[in-house]
Design a protein around this nucleic acid. Structure first.
Length: 592
RNA sequence: GGCUCCGUAGUUCAAUGGAUAGAAUAUAAGAUUCCGGUUCUUACGAUAUGGGUUCGAAUCCCGUCGGAGUCACCA
């Protein structure tokens, strides 16, 4: 049952009986804060105008009425204008039994809403780095959360596989590669191609330097450097469908995709649809025509097409180049339109870094001006940079943290820690590998996802993998301990039974309440696209369980009924931990 | 300069306009050492700043100061 709705309805009925017309919005319900007695709290301030009494008097008469009318609500107390209601133990026992019996607990009914979430969207000229990790983890987790909320989620990846950047890698490979391939070098494809991108930049700079030494202005040198001219020429050939260039482009991109696949697999993310910009970059031109016809866009003398957004506090924005070719915005407009139509989407979420906030502001505004009301259904899930204890990542200074390296480091740290403690001695090497990978990745994922996306964050690898504190491994550890208890119970032939809970300790009631909060937590995370809400919930659950487990033995409990109840409680806590973590894309081990 | 976002304990993070601003970590003191690396208690310690709205503001509005991003015929 929906507990919050039950309480709200009870309060609404009582308030209506006392004061006449009361709207649901006037019933402010929240969970009672820990330091006060009670389970749910009604804030009575919004009702004072109707009751014409003091906050205390209003809360008291409302409380009396609610308790009199509802058997499950056993008592209340009033502090200032806050009415704290307490539910009976039997009520919580019943809720607990419901959870145990519900195999789909926390999964919402289908909503029929189609939501596309686009994330990752890499360039094919270099490997993924720490910033992409935040993107991928966020995108995957939000997709999981939206699915749990009953939506049809389409995970999409729009690969930026064309343009001058990939031509740069191609030119450098032709010039300096000597036919090197991933096979011949033993290098991951994306890294190999990335190396030539770096190589391009190196030679480009030295060519500029030479030209400047020869008397050319720096600005001119940047345009005239032979290697840059070569790259631009290659882009022209690419657009003209030159066979040789296309063949090389296919070859090098396929290396990159093989490399990305490995990284995605390591990160545990996946996609339902992969789009390539080489196939979508021509979209959007008809929209430009449409905008011109409607007089929303205007054409400059050189033939380029613009929109003037100065009245909206923005700038003039280019939508089509003078030569008729499209820019980023053109194809994003076209892509959005095409998707909304062909997938009948109700919502599109773009997981893209906050350096593109302006772009999405413009995108939505242009669509709106064209008369597409679904512009409101576009949501830019913007996230901030990830910094490291050593400082900011800067590609120019070579301080970029590679995604593959980081993942490998996290896993090997997890391995070192486990070996030191000898915890994996009894495992096969496959089991040990799986556990180290779960722990290393769990540390990384949890640490990144617990933070509000829009904030710039600091990733501290050492802190993230600590077994104490608000970390992934702490949560995994709690789960593994419970599994250990459950294994022992099984060996002893003890069954888990939920009914007949009998008396209930305060900590047990607290844990059951937290388990009851799970569906509402999933809903809140879905509404706000916020994995951090799930993370905070799970951490609180683990802390509460650890405290309980410390004070009250499960297997040594002498009363058989109590023992079974505690065991079931532990089992359900483990179940919800695992479910929550899955929403974050994190796996939990049964031993570690 | 225009626009957007962010400023919370030493540090890293929380807080649908609600109660005494929570954790974690670090530091200090104490208890415990029993199903897995303990756990618990206590102490210390923060809303950048000035106004406004409200019964009530870290949160909403305006100003100031600090930081980030962005303002390309790049993506």
């Amino acid at each position: 049952m929906n507990i919050e709705k039950y309480i709200s309805d009870a309060a609404l009925a009582a308030a209506t009986a006392l004061y006449g017309e009361v709207t649901p919005a006037q019933i402010q319900l929240q969970k009672t804060r820990k330091e006060f007695e009670g389970d749910y709290t009604i804030v009575t301030f919004p009702l004072l105008k109707l009751s014409r009494k003091s906050p205390e008097a209003t809360a008291t008469e409302l409380g009396e009425r609610i308790v009199a009318d509802n058997e499950a609500i056993g008592g209340f107390n009033v502090i200032k204008g806050f009415l704290n209601l307490s539910l009976n133990d039997s009520f919580w026992s019943e809720r607990f039994e419901e959870i145990v019996a519900n195999s789909r607990y926390g999964e919402a009914e289908p909503t029929g809403r189609n939501i596309m979430i686009e994330y990752s969207s890499p360039n094919t000229n270099k490997p993924l780095h720490l910033g992409h990790i935040r993107n991928n983890l966020l995108g995957y987790s939000v997709a999981q959360i939206l699915s749990a909320n009953g939506h049809n989620v389409i995970k999409a990846n729009l690969v930026n596989d064309r343009g001058i950047h990939i031509c740069k890698s191609m030119v450098a490979w032709l010039r300096y590669g000597n036919g090197a391939t991933p096979e011949s070098t033993g290098k991951k494809g994306d890294h190999l191609v990335g190396d030539y991108y770096v190589e391009f930049d190196k030679h480009y700079k030295s060519e500029i330097k030479d030209l400047v030494a020869g008397g050319m202005s720096e600005e001119e040198a940047k345009k005239q450097a032979p290697i840059m001219l070569e790259a631009q020429e290659m882009l022209r050939k690419w657009e003209a469908q030159d066979e040789e260039v296309r063949a090389l482009w296919h070859k090098m991109n396929s290396w990159v995709y093989d490399g990305f696949d490995v990284t995605y697999k390591a990160l545990g993310v996946d996609f339902d649809k992969i789009y390539y910009e080489s196939q979508t970059y021509l979209l959007g031109k008809s929209l430009v025509e449409e905008g011109l016809a409607k007089g929303i866009f205007f054409r400059k003398e050189d033939g380029s097409v613009w929109i003037d957004l100065t009245a909206d506090g923005l700038d003039q924005k280019l939508l089509l180049r003078g030569d008729g070719t499209s820019v980023y915005m053109t194809q994003d407009l076209g892509t959005a339109l095409q998707r909304v139509k062909s997938e009948s989407l109700d919502e599109i979420i773009y997981v893209v870094g906050n350096e593109q906030n302006y772009h999405f502001q413009v995108l939505k505004l242009v669509l709106k001006k064209l008369g597409y009301e679904w512009s409101d259904d576009i949501y830019h899930l913007s996230y901030g940079m990830v910094e490291l204890p050593e400082g900011k990542m800067k590609s120019r200074e070579g301080t970029v943290v590679d995604a593959d390296d980081l993942v490998a480091d996290m896993i090997s740290t997890a391995r070192d820690m486990s070996q030191e403690l000898g915890k994996l001695d009894g495992c096969t090497s496959e089991e040990a590998d799986a556990i180290c990978s779960m722990v290393g990745l769990g540390a990384l994922k949890y640490f990144i996802l617990k933070v509000d996306p829009k904030k710039t964050m600091l990733f501290d690898p050492r802190e993230s993998i600590d077994f104490n504190g608000n970390t992934g491994p702490f949560i995994q550890y709690t789960h593994a301990r419970i599994c250990s208890v459950l294994r022992k119970a099984e060996e002893q032939g003890i069954e888990c039974v939920a009914h007949g809970t009998g008396s209930m300790l305060a900590e047990e009631r607290e844990l059951i309440k937290m388990l009851c909060d799970y569906p509402a937590t999933v809903a809140a995370a879905g509404e706000n696209f916020a994995p951090s809400i799930i993370a905070a919930y799970t951490y609180e659950l683990c802390k509460a369980f650890n405290g309980y487990y410390h004070d009250h033995s499960i297997l040594r409990e002498e009363n058989e009924t109590t023992k079974k109840m505690r065991l079931t409680l532990a089992q359900q806590v483990a179940r919800i931990i695992a479910k929550s973590m899955r929403l974050l894309g994190i796996d939990v081990p049964e031993r570690m």
